[in-house]
Nucleic acid binder design. Structure first.
Length: 254
DNA sequence: CGAACGACCTGCAGGC
DNA sequence: TGCCTGCAGGTCGTTC
């Protein structure tokens, strides 16, 4: 339990992340008490008795709970020392994450324009429909835009569009209210299912406990280009949309 | 304003 | 075997 613990120190081994870790962070954090732990989109927000932290794991970051004598591994960037004697050790091979101090983490500018949580009550088909009017961009780009809804990355966007029977390159502004109702439902279902299975392991991604995620086994189109669609048998196709590989079944999706 | 796209970075796969 | 290239991912910042 992190809440209630006091921070006894911070070790910065490698400050190179998306933004350099501030050199005054150890001094700022020393002696602070953790008041609350929250999440918004993929940001971890830690409220302290004075200020707090905005922490993002990028795509390859992980945190493990270790003790002082645990061997340091490649890409271990930061240790957050706690008065329990444990440490939170942050490892991030690709350095896409960040570790930022903020006077009020939940009001950090990075969070200002984020759309609703996909599993929360504010995310509806009606919202997708309204926000998409007049938009000419592909629907896949639209749902991957964090201003539309947070948390829908390339894998889950591809899968949800397949489940909803919508072609990824279809113009967002030309999709009906009814189809967006279905799409919002599928986005929720796909994300909930992926979370249940511990995420999707591609190459080197692992869960916090070191086990792989098992959602990969039920991917319908993502990274299945050239293979038979699991529903109709037709070959899964792929094209680049918004600089991202996007696979789909042209028989099941319209 | 929306939209497109480059940039960041490393590990891995594939080709030679 | 070893080198080189290309790709993958999340999301900000810049440019059109």
């Amino acid at each position: 339990m992190l809440q209630g613990q006091r921070i006894t120190g911070l070790i910065i081994r490698d400050s190179r992340l998306r933004w350099p870790v501030a050199t005054d962070l150890p001094a700022r954090l020393q002696g602070r008490q953790v008041e609350a732990l929250k999440r918004r989109a993929k940001y971890i927000l830690i409220r302290l008795d004075q200020g707090g932290l905005v922490w993002h794991l990028g795509m390859s970051g992980s945190i493990r709970v270790v003790t002082a004598d645990s061997a340091v591994q490649k890409h271990d960037h930061i240790d957050l020392l706690l008065d329990s004697g444990n440490r939170l050790r942050y490892n991030d091979p690709r350095r896409f994450g960040c570790f930022l101090w903020c006077a009020n983490p939940s009001r950090h500018p990075l969070l200002a324009d984020l759309g609703p949580e996909p599993l929360g009550p504010d995310f509806t088909g009606e919202l997708l429909y309204r926000r998409s009017r007049g938009r000419r961009q592909p629907v896949k780009s639209f749902i991957m835009d964090q201003k539309t809804v947070v948390g829908v990355g390339n894998i889950y966007a591809s899968e949800a569009l397949f489940e909803a029977g919508i072609l990824p390159h279809r113009q967002a502004g030309r999709i009906s209210r009814q189809r967006y109702a279905l799409l919002s439902e599928k986005i929720r279902r796909v994300l909930a299912s992926a979370i249940e299975q511990g995420g999707t392991t591609l190459r080197d991604f692992l869960q916090a406990d070191g086990r792989p995620g098992y959602f990969r086994q039920q991917l319908a189109v993502y990274q299945r280009e050239g293979l038979a669609c699991r529903v109709c048998g037709q070959t899964v196709r792929s094209r680049v949309i918004g600089q991202r590989a996007s696979s789909y079944c042209s028989h099941c999706q319209h």
